[in-house]
C-alpha cells in the first residue's frame, strides 16, 4: 500500500477512531485513574488510595451479589430470549404474507421505554391487581412477584426478553431466509420429520444468526439497569443487584466515584472474560456443525 492510499485509509477510518478515543479510550483511562483515588468528583481534593478500592470491592456483598446475579440472569434470560425470538421468527416465517408488518409489531417493544414498561409491570403485579386477585381467589396462589429472590429475577428477565425478542427475531428471520430451500426439499424426500428438520437442519444452519443473537444478548445481560432500578432497586436481599445497579448506587447515591470506578473496571474485566469464554463455547458448537 503506498503512502497516499495509507493516508486515505487513515482518513476514512478516523471518524470511528476519533469516536473510539473520545468515548472509549479516554473514559477508560479516566476510570482507571479514578479507581485508584477516593475522589467523589466534586471535592476539591482527593488522595491516591492504590488498590484499596479494588480490595474493598472484592469483599463487598453488593459486588459479590452483582457477580453471581449476572450469571443467574444469563441462565434465565438467554434461554428465554433465544427461545422466544426463535418462536417469533418461525411464526413470521410461516406467514403467507405481511411478514414485515408482523415483524415491526414484534419489534416495537424494543423501542419502548424501560421505565414505562417497568411501571406497567409493577402495576400488573401489585398485590391487588386483577392478575393476583385471580391467582389468589381462583387458584389459591399468592405469589410475591417482586419480593422473593427468584421471582423478582425472573420477572426482570421476562421484561427484558419481551423487549428484545422482536429485535432478535428480526436477525433470526434473515438467518432463516439465508438457508437454502433445496436442503429442506432433499430432507423431505428422505422422509425427515418436521422436528428433525428443525434440530438437524434449521438450527445448525442458523448458527451465524444465532451467534449474533447470543453475543448481543450476553452483552445486554451485563448491562441490565433500568428494569432493576425501577422494579426492585437490586433487592430483595441483593437478588437482582446487577453490576450497573451497584455502580449507580455507589457513584450517585453514596458519592463514591472512585470506588464505583473500581467496580466498573472489575465489571468490565468480568464481562470481557465471560463473553470471551462463552464465545469460544459457541464457536466450538459452530465448528462441530461445520462452521469455521
Amino acid at each position: 500500500m503506498n503512502t497516499k492510499q495509507g493516508r486515505l485509509g487513515w482518513l476514512f477510518t478516523s471518524p470511528y477512531l476519533i469516536y473510539a478515543v473520545v468515548f472509549f479510550l479516554i473514559p477508560l483511562v479516566w476510570s482507571l485513574f479514578l479507581s485508584m483515588t477516593d475522589w467523589n468528583l466534586i471535592s476539591p481534593t482527593f488522595s491516591f488510595v492504590g488498590i484499596t478500592n479494588y480490595t474493598e470491592a472484592f469483599q463487598s456483598p453488593g459486588v459479590k451479589a452483582a457477580f453471581f446475579v449476572t450469571f443467574k440472569f444469563l441462565a434465565v434470560f438467554i434461554p428465554l430470549v433465544v427461545a422466544s425470538s426463535v418462536i417469533v421468527a418461525l411464526i413470521v416465517k410461516g406467514l403467507p404474507k405481511y411478514k414485515g408488518i408482523f415483524l415491526i409489531g414484534f419489534f416495537l417493544p424494543y423501542l419502548a421505554s424501560g421505565v414505562v414498561s417497568s411501571l406497567i409491570v409493577k402495576g400488573l403485579l401489585s398485590y391487588n391487581s386483577p392478575i393476583n386477585e385471580f391467582l389468589r381467589n381462583s387458584l389459591g396462589l399468592d405469589i410475591d412477584w417482586l419480593g422473593t429472590p427468584f421471582a423478582a429475577l425472573f420477572v426482570v428477565a421476562v421484561i427484558i426478553a419481551w423487549k428484545f425478542t422482536g429485535y432478535y427475531a428480526l436477525i433470526l428471520t434473515s438467518g432463516f431466509e439465508s438457508i437454502n430451500k433445496e436442503i429442506y426439499e432433499a430432507a423431505m424426500i428422505d422422509g425427515v420429520s418436521a422436528w428433525q428438520r428443525f434440530w438437524k437442519i434449521t438450527f445448525p444452519l442458523l448458527y451465524p444468526a444465532l451467534y449474533t443473537v447470543l453475543i448481543l444478548s450476553i452483552g445486554v445481560t451485563f448491562g441490565i439497569f433500568t428494569e432493576v432500578y425501577q422494579l426492585t432497586g437490586g433487592g430483595p436481599n441483593f437478588a437482582t443487584n446487577t453490576w450497573q445497579m451497584e455502580i449507580f448506587t455507589r457513584a450517585f447515591s453514596n458519592l463514591q466515584a472512585g470506588y464505583a470506578s473500581a467496580i466498573a473496571i472489575i465489571a468490565s474485566v468480568v464481562t470481557f472474560i465471560s463473553i470471551f469464554i462463552i464465545r469460544k463455547i459457541i464457536e466450538l458448537w459452530g465448528k462441530r456443525n461445520g462452521w469455521d
Partner: peptide, 14 residues
C-alpha cells in the same frame, strides 16, 4: 403488615 406492592392500599382500605 403487608409488604407487597399494592395499588393505593390506604385509599382502597387494604
Amino acid at each position: 403488615l403487608l409488604t407487597r406492592k399494592a395499588k393505593d392500599p390506604f385509599e382502597s382500605g387494604l
